[in-house]
Nucleic acid binder design. Structure first.
Lengths: 179, 179
DNA sequence: ACCGTTGTGAACATGAGTGTTCACCTGCTG
DNA sequence: CAGCAGGTGAACACTCATGTTCACAACGGT
């Protein structure tokens, strides 16, 4: 049961960032005292949730061959599947002010930025900064997660949506009809 | 001085959604009592800020010719310029649970959704749902605002970045080199 | 000079979240 | 069986945001 604690905390805090620790404990089916014993303070809990998400991303990133030309597609497809656990990182208010978490995020962004830079000119446009492309990827992921949680988008459709939108845009390029 | 109150509140609450009313009052150079007299409760203040942003959008939308084929470009360009005042709507936690604000947002989305639907097949892809395209537009705006606030992106570059990314994507389409 | 408006600080009550402690129960292990 | 580890509810003190009231200043119009 204790394994689910952080996952429960993730979804509760994501739905309502101001949720009390009592709410989290109750949702996890655990006493508030127990929660306090494992994560003595609120920020400790938030940090643990964030680090849990980062661990998850790390484990996924390690399965991706960053040397491959399809690395980005592979990475995105895998990230979409992670859902709320990772959404927390991009969405939780004030998280960007936690030095420890932020540096870990930046450290995680670096290899992706390198990958993007390497692919610029072949698979990716060269006239946009790498950081802009990275954030566009994140935005696509974010959209997918949100749409899934609202029930508008089927999880299995998500990777395709994100990839085609991010790479090809929503414009009806030239005269070739894509529909 | 009182005109700036809502704008100040916007930026303060956007930077830290948990900021106290005392913080807001101090930042606006106004007594906490005065703030309370104008907006008796916290949610009243938040709602006022949201409605202020919505008014701003309305005034912008009224300048756009929704019949034109370039309506989307025009709209986005104008929205980018609004910046934080509108970012608040998409970013403030829990705002989506305020019935009054949400219905106004939905009412505001509708004409844009109609516009998107109308342009699908000509200017926009037909194989993506209109709501997905709409949210992709929002995501682009969001990215731009964030990048501007971090000083990474020049405000004058923003509209072009958003438009080209959203419409054409970040992929190096086919063999034509765009750089 | 008078008065309504508007803003102000001070003060207070209240409620909620939090951190902390303690005594108690359970289950497992030696 | 003894004892330990882990979980639990109850209770407490403390802090802080909030809502509210009040008496006092500043200002403008009449």
């Amino acid at each position: 049961m204790s394994v689910h604690l952080l996952q429960t905390a993730t979804s509760v805090l994501l739905k309502d960032p101001t949720a009390s620790l009592a709410d989290v404990a109750r949702a996890a089916g655990v006493g508030r005292t127990t929660l306090h014993k494992r994560y003595p303070t609120r920020t400790a809990l938030v940090r643990a949730v964030a680090n849990d998400a980062l661990d998850l991303i790390d484990s996924v990133a390690r399965q991706v061959d960053f040397g491959s030309d399809d690395a980005i597609e592979d990475l995105i497809t895998r990230l979409v599947a992670l859902g709320p656990r990772v959404e927390f990182l991009l969405r939780f208010p004030g998280l960007e002010r936690d030095e420890e978490v932020r540096t870990r995020i930046e450290a995680m962004d670096q290899p992706v930025l390198d990958l993007i830079t390497r692919l610029q000119g072949t698979k990716l446009r060269r006239d946009l900064p790498a950081w802009w492309i990275l954030h566009t990827l994140y935005a696509g992921l974010f959209n997918a997660w949100e749409a899934i949680s609202y029930g508008r988008l089927a999880p299995l459709d998500a990777p395709r949506f994100v990839l085609t939108t991010v790479f090809e845009g929503v414009g009806n390029a030239g005269s070739t009809d894509r529909a």
